[in-house]
């Protein structure tokens, strides 16, 4: 998986990378699910997300917040995501499987994405994002 957890005392700090900005958004959504739940491969359930924001960091924040909200309220573990970004708008399709406490209920519960510490930058050919997930 193209992500790693970085040291943080109280919450979860992650770094995610991908070859494109859209890929980065998709990997970030999957990484967040992977941290909370066990690995998954299901494709049976899908949800779509459409958003606008004033800049790319705000777009990522709002996208991850929406993925978290859908996962929690609809009871879905997302295993993959397809993301399209045009200007300040994002359209995404998330695919996954229904949450099952016995299989997926093993990680920490992320309650929100912090504005603080959220950044996107280029590292060689990769797009990289760092964020703090509140737990």
């Amino acid at each position: 998986m193209p992500y790693e957890e970085l040291p943080h005392t109280a919450d979860i700090r992650v770094r995610v990378w991908a070859g494109s900005m859209e890929g980065l958004f998709a990997e970030a959504a999957v990484a967040m699910n992977r941290i909370m739940y066990a690995p998954c491969q299901g494709e049976g359930v899908s949800e779509s997300v459409s958003l606008n924001a004033e800049d790319i960091e705000a777009l990522l924040h709002d996208f991850l917040s929406e993925v978290l909200f859908l996962s929690e309220v609809r009871g879905v573990v997302f295993c993959s995501a397809e993301v399209r970004i045009e200007g300040g708008s994002l359209n995404a399709i998330l695919r996954g499987e229904p949450f099952d406490r016995r299989r997926h209920g093993c990680g920490p519960e992320i309650k929100g994405i912090s504005y603080y510490g959220l950044r996107i930058y280029k590292r060689d050919e990769d797009y990289v994002m760092e964020a703090i997930f509140d737990i």
């Binding site: 957890e5 970085l6 040291p7 943080h8 005392t9 109280a10 919450d11 979860i12 700090r13 920490p108 737990i135």
Partner: peptide, 8 residues
């Protein structure tokens, strides 16, 4: 109050 990060 925590001393060590969760990852650590």
């Amino acid at each position: 109050g925590r001393l060590t990060s969760r990852t650590q």
